[in-house]
Nucleic acid binder design. Structure first.
Lengths: 199, 199
DNA sequence: TTTCACAGACCGTCTGGACTGTCAATATGT
DNA sequence: ACATATTGACAGTCCAGACGGTCTGTGAAA
């Protein structure tokens, strides 16, 4: 039985459009993600798309929030089933790695690059990114049980490494070097947490 | 005095078009880099552009080679005025950092992202990237005077960090954390070189 | 005279967005 | 409870502009 109330219908179509937008960003890239492709891919009329999002720009802005939300939920879900403390470090690193190599992150990457030259995307992505970064660190530091500057530093180095690996992985096949490089960041993180705990 | 021979004229226009393409990639991004914008920006007619590069695709393919060439030259120039050995490490790291935060690299980044979903760009960028990577490592290892696996590893970690920083720097203002993170990679590299030399 | 680097008009296609039409889900009056 | 008016979630057509690429013309170098 399909949804009956207007609110249900509205929410469902809206979410479907956002998911399709993400899928198109992954499949066709930012340059190839046209509103027509999105509507075709979503099996929705032109009127429907423009009813929910008055312009392509508004659609992308909404997609940015959508992606950030999914990302945060994914990390939170991973953090929830861990007992806080030092032992959670490898699991959290792995969770971050998984989140930053999935298709959601690819879509985000497309928008991230677009933000450099598209001011509309930029002014939507910048604050969203700031907030996401803040919330991710909150989850991460709480799960680790420390937020010492040194842990923070190692965490930032890990994030930057994961971004670099994501970029590298776009062209090269998955290097086995990647594992070792991440292990080095994990080690930094562990010693930083150790130091923080023993003081 | 403008060039007189046909060959000079041809080479000059061709180079001018490639430089303009790079400039447009930097200013407008991959999605916004249209052939019309390039010809307007270059002050060249439509016929001229399509005379040199039969299609947009061919122009981008040529631009890929152009960017790789510039990148390699930049690093080689930096390496040339260094005395090989351990003391060259900080200088080489700085040279890589500079090369991977300039506008040439931005243009390359646009094409790198485009390569993910555009098979024509991908099949041109992938081999070019492989060769560039190989030559860069040759220059780097020769300047350092060692090519031990551990040095190679630290070098790869540095490259990936620099890519991650480039990506991060697109949205955030230049973090002072960046310096510290690079310093950590530099330190890894130095100890790896030390180990290689003392064995 | 021939060649070729370039000029610029032209064409079919695609894009984002405006627009009007339709019909079921609601709100309202009785 | 029922009939009727209104809203809103879509459908689908249309259009001006921009896109990449073709084609013919032109003038200076060879």
């Amino acid at each position: 039985m399909p949804p009956t109330t207007r609110q249900q219908q509205r929410d469902q179509t809206r979410k479907h459009l956002l998911d399709t937008t993400v899928a198109c960003l992954v499949e066709y890239g930012y340059a190839g993600t046209t509103t027509q492709r999105i509507q075709d891919h979503a099996g929705v009329s032109r009127g429907a798309l423009l009813h929910h999002f008055g312009s392509k720009e508004q659609l992308f802005v909404a997609a940015i929030g959508h992606i950030a939300e999914l990302h945060l939920e994914q990390i939170k879900a991973a953090a929830k089933q861990m007992t806080p403390g030092k032992h959670a470090v490898p699991g959290m690193v792995e969770a971050l790695r998984k989140a930053m190599s999935g298709s959601n992150f690819l879509a985000g990457l497309e928008l991230w690059m677009a933000a450099r030259t598209d001011s509309a995307v930029r002014s939507a992505l910048a604050p969203s990114e700031r907030q996401l970064g803040k919330e991710l660190w909150t989850v991460f530091s709480q799960t680790l049980g420390t937020d010492s500057p040194r842990v923070r530093m190692a965490y930032e180095a890990l994030l930057i490494t994961l971004r670099g690996l994501a970029l590298t992985g776009l062209l090269r096949e998955n290097d086995q070097r990647a594992d070792e490089i991440i292990r080095a960041r994990l080690h930094e993180l562990l010693t930083a947490v150790d130091d923080a705990e023993s003081s």
